[in-house]
Each structure stands twice: as structure tokens, then as C-alpha cells.
Design a binder for these strands. Structure first.
Lengths: 224, 224
DNA sequence: GCAACTATCAAACGAATGTTTGAAACATAA
DNA sequence: TTATGTTTCAAACATTCGTTTGATAGTTGC
């Protein structure tokens, strides 16, 4: 019990601080002092700071990817054979995100922020870890998007998928700041699920936008 | 000459390394050794690391915001009195970005990557600096977007504006990697302007997507 | 040519970081 | 109890960081 208590106190505090300040900017001393555990506890229980970061992610992503896989199973079984509309695919993702029970009481916004950080702050080890650990879930999702937008040329869909990802990741990673601004400017409390539900029609419309004409106006230089 | 050489060698190297690894992860020693200048040179010429970071941004953003203001002047004079369509506003922004001469040969992707980092890695001083220094340009842009989408509720536009920004910054900041993948997967050379021209209809469609219903299903908890 | 200023440099400073150590406290089972 | 294994703890370790220092060279103005 004692070590479990220590372990999860570290995880809870680290998660909070990482989401708040980023990984490099959060020191083990800050974590351990705020968690009221000894400094050496992190290295004892996790091995290293890197391993702690991965553990924080794993606590969210393991149940998430499992649930997301189940939801995708369900979605496929509901549309057996027939084509799955893009909106259904997107909604499966977002409802999984929204209804995910959180390990801590911090809820969705911490998870979002962590995901955003993972993408933007991750150099090397983190990106590799996420790829190896959760790459297959992501691949399955993109495959569903592909068959849900079979009318799109492959190149076009490739870019739009990343436009979509960009909206999500970018918004997530500065979600708290944006929420503050929004609440200040519009006197209206914004819930995370609201942001996610605003995101859906946006990216959905973007995905089915008219395909642009890429003809280059004559006489303009090429910058590859 | 000698000090200008040192100053710009520092700026060039810092810019490259910042874009590559982030701000906190890039040490002055790495910068100065790669730039072949003395370690103390940064503090001598810039005063501090923070000031160096700001100088790197200023070298891009000063000419950019100036040009962008001019382009917005032009756009307004072309639509004197009448309403400016959203697409025109967006295209003004993107063509300014695309045609911006870069201080270094790194080009657009470094600039975008820096912008992305500024948004996601910036705690405190950087965000404040950008706000104080270039807030007015950004505000003018958002004002144009506002009057170009006057049918949208303010809150909705606020979030969509950031979705839009997210697509752009995220895509552009990993543009080199994405371009490589795209060329490898689709055997097709992609120019930066192509990506931008794909981006426009995407975000444009997103901006005029149907407004979502944010009703909370009964019996679900509130996580703000 | 001398003075005043500017720029470079090696070296050190103080603070902060992640990690390791070895002893102490605690728990578990024989 | 005794013995074994696990967890906590204060302290120290070895790096690394941004910054400062004081001496040395280089340049400019008179």
C-alpha cells in the first residue's frame, strides 16, 4: 500500500505539473516536494525521469487506446459491410476522448494538454515511444478516415488529415490559456467537451471542402 | 563588421537549433560552439538567453508584421466600404507568409515551427512579448476575420479562429517532414504554396461549417 | 601615438538539474 | 525473534546550465 501511495502521488503530481509547464521545465524536485515524497522516490519507483513521463502517458493512453479500439470495433460492426460516414468516425474518436474516465480528478483538459505537449515537445524518445506503443491504434483510425472519404484524392486526404490533427493538437496544447481568454472575453464558462464538440463540425466541413486548383499563375517562381 | 558577423551567426544558429529542439532544450553552449563564437558573446550582444529568443523572433516578425499591415491596407482599399470576403482575408495572410523573404535560407518552415513553439512552449515572458510587440497586427487580422464572418457567434468564431491557426501552424511547423512523407507516398513533388493552397479551402469550409449544438446529454457529469 | 571604446576570449561562478548512495525504517514470513 | 526483502530518507555526486569576470586584442577618433 505504502509504495502504491507513493507511486500514484508522484504520478498525479507529475501529470499536473507536466501539463502546466511542460516536461523539461518541470524538475523532479518540484514534483517530489509538491507530492510530499522523497526526491529519490522517482528514480526508485520509475527508474528515470523519462520513464516517469512515459508512465504518466501510459496511465492515460493504455485505457484510452483500449477503449478506442473497442469503440471502433463497435462502429464497424454497426456498419457491417457498408461504408462508414466520416462524421461517425470522428464522433467515435471524440466521444471516446470525452467519456474517458480520468485517472485523476483533473479530467479531460490535462489529458488534452498532455497529448498536445507530446506532439509539440516530443523530440526523440517520446515520439518513438508513442509511435511504438500506440501507433497501431492511430493507423487504424487513419484507415477508417481513408475509407470514409474515398472520394478524396489520396494526396488531398493526406494533407487534410494533418490539417485536422493540427487543429486538434494545437488547440489542446493551449487549451487552458484559450479557455481563460474565452471566459474573460465572453463571460461564458467553456467546458472541454464544448471545445471538442465545436471542433467536429469544423474539421468535418474542412474534410469535405471543395478540392483546390493548384495551377501556378504563369511567370511566378518556383520555391519547391 | 566583426560584431555584426558574430551577432548574425548567433541568430542564424540559434534560430536553427530552437526550431529543431525547442528553447529550453537548446543551451547557449550548443549555440555558441556550433556558431563558432565565444560563449560569452550571447550575453554580451543580447544580454540574456531570453533576449536572444526574442531577437530571433523579431528578425522574422518585424518585417512580417510590417508587410502584413501593408497588405491589409491594400486589401481594405480594394474593398473600400464593401464587405471583404473571408477567403480574401485568408489569402492576404497566406500570400504574405509565402512571399516573405527569409532572413536565412531556412525559409518558411523554420518560421512556422518557431511560431508553433512560441505558442506551445511559451510560458510567461514569450507570450507576453509576442502579445505586446505584435498584438496589434494580430488584433487587426482578427477584426477583419470578424467582419468577414459576421454571421458567426463571437464565441464560435473565437474557437474556429484558433482551430484555423492550429491547422496552419501545426502543418507548417512539421512541413518538411510531411513533405517528405507525401513525396515518398505519392510520388509527387509538393511545393509550399501547394500546401497553403490546400489549406485555404479547408479552413475556409471549417469557418462556415454549421454551428454545433452543445446541449449536454442528461445525467452526465460536469468537468468544466 | 595615445586614449577611449568595442569586441573576443578562457575561466570561473553559483545555481539547478537528474541520479546514486548507504543507512535507517518498515514490512513480511519462517 | 530473526532474517529477508522492500521502501524511505538525507546527503552527496557529477553534470549542465546561464551568467559574470577580468584580461587581452582590435578598432576608432583625436
Amino acid at each position: 500500500m505504502a509504495q502504491l501511495d507513493t507511486v500514484s502521488r508522484i504520478l498525479d503530481t507529475a501529470e499536473m505539473l507536466f501539463a502546466e509547464k511542460g516536461f523539461a521545465e518541470t524538475s523532479l524536485r518540484t514534483i517530489t516536494s509538491k507530492a510530499k515524497v522523497n526526491l529519490a522516490a522517482v528514480n526508485y519507483h520509475f527508474g528515470s525521469k523519462k520513464a516517469l513521463i512515459q508512465a504518466v502517458f501510459a496511465r492515460y493512453l493504455d485505457p484510452f487506446s483500449e477503449r478506442f479500439n473497442e469503440e471502433m470495433d463497435l462502429l464497424e460492426s454497426r456498419h457491417k459491410g457498408e461504408e462508414i460516414p466520416l462524421n461517425a468516425v470522428l464522433e467515435t474518436l471524440t466521444t471516446t476522448v470525452i467519456t474517458m474516465p480520468s485517472p485523476t480528478r483533473n479530467g479531460l483538459s490535462v489529458f488534452m494538454r498532455l497529448l498536445g505537449l507530446a506532439y509539440t515537445q516530443a523530440q526523440g524518445h517520446m515520439r518513438r515511444y508513442l509511435q511504438e506503443q500506440y501507433g497501431s491504434v492511430f493507423y487504424r483510425f487513419t484507415a477508417m478516415v481513408r475509407s470514409a472519404s474515398s472520394d478524396l484524392p489520396d494526396v488531398e486526404r493526406f494533407w487534410r488529415l494533418h490539417f485536422m490533427l493540427g487543429s486538434a493538437v494545437f488547440t489542446m496544447s493551449s487549451l487552458d490559456a484559450l479557455k481563460d481568454i474565452a471566459e474573460q472575453d465572453f463571460n461564458e464558462q467553456t467546458r472541454v467537451r464544448d471545445v471538442v464538440q465545436r471542433l467536429i463540425p469544423f474539421v468535418s466541413a474542412g474534410m469535405s471542402a471543395p478540392i483546390p486548383d493548384l495551377t501556378v499563375p504563369a511567370g511566378e517562381q518556383d520555391d519547391s
